[in-house]
Design a protein around this nucleic acid. Sequence first.
RNA 1: CGGGCCGUAGUAUACCGGUAGUACGCAUGCUUUGGGAGCAUGUAGACUGGGUUCAAUUCCCAGCGGCCCGACCA
Length: 412
Amino acid sequence: MLQSKLFPKTQKQAPRDEISANAQLLIRAGFIDKLMAGVYTFLPLGFRVLKKIENIIREEMVGAGGQEILMPALQPKENWDKTGRWETMNDLYRIKDARDKEFALGPTHEEIIFPFLKKTISSYKDLPVYVFQIQNKFRMELRAKSGLLRGREFLMKDFYSFHANENDRDRYYDLMIDIYKRVFARAGVGKETYFTFAPGGTFSKYSDEFQTVTEAGEDVVHICDKCRKAINNEIFREQRKCPQCGKSDFRKEKAIEVGNIFKLKNKFAEDFDLKFKDKDGHEKFVITACYGIGLGRLMGAVVEVNHDDKGIIWPEAVAPFRIHLLLLNNELRIKNKADELYKDLQKAKIEVLYDDRDDVSAGEKFAEADLIGIPYRVVVSEKTAAQNKLEIKKRNEAKARLITKKELLKYV
RNA sequence: CGGGCCGUAGUAUACCGGUAGUACGCAUGCUUUGGGAGCAUGUAGACUGGGUUCAAUUCCCAGCGGCCCGACCA
């Protein structure tokens, strides 16, 4: 990608009223644009990051046997009446069309997937079923906040598993815990993310969360460093010992919930009469669990955890590009070298953002490169050309060094 | 939803009951090119509605919007 064509430009100053690092940096660097509180447009750079995150999640979900589907955001009120959530869910968007017919904008999809399964499941032979989608959710947050961390419309991966018995469900649930850990490790927040014992909701007493430690977080967790397990502050009173090692040696931190998984009691199966005929000829309720990850929130958490005073420091797996190539001199012989390198990198299938602009000072290019935060910065200038080398610097390291093109292609 | 703070060019800000100023940006020209460059000339602005007043961007009220704290959050 040529930076001369990249849309939009970066900004020197963050909007005054944004406090959180993810909002400030992502807006300044041109990754996102705020339409209103909690609702964002993902611009070319931000969209690339979102897609990287999405693909990591998709790969892992498919690896777990999940089959991807896409359910509607526009949903009939009747489904929500059946579970009672039309009345009880505070943050449900309830809308009316011109005929006064009422609909929900989906905040989650139990009300859709359960009745669908009802049409297709009749025998234990039809189970288990693993389905997921990556789709925009709507929640009427009374207080959207902290950039991407709490939105009203946001991309979420929701995964639903359906089983013939609790053993099978529990086995699968444990597998999913490991898969979730892998997702967060790949996204670059593995070190800061803790598997957390947490309160449930209306339909189960407890749930499990994945909490990424950051000052911008809105939850408080108590961490057992020995086991890398945490307990959500909301249930710390009833659970004062580490579920793993039994000790009560905790570190208290603020954290953001990037993932939440829970075993469902029979609530939805009963509401939608989701039963199957077991081997023994008896009708039984299908046993289920749900697994969610907020993609935008995860992207925000990645920025909260990986930035400095100059800008974002993207982990390689989710960075919008791998190399940021800067041309610091407009002389044709030097520009030719950079152009050629750009082509070679593209040929090698290395994602590169090439700052080819001829009307921007070197200082500005450096400052923007730091702000945007692409992992490898490669400079072509008079200095490097004189030695027939390139300068390379990692965004998370202080020092640059000179290498040959051959070395570069091998290195990145 | 309760509390607090705040709405002035694209962005960040200043002043003011009587002609709204600065910086960045943007445009043009020249110079410059290893850390958000220099000079010159331009460009562009008071959230909405009501009230007070000879006069309101300024004061008052309401609405709308934003951020922060809290509550809420399958």
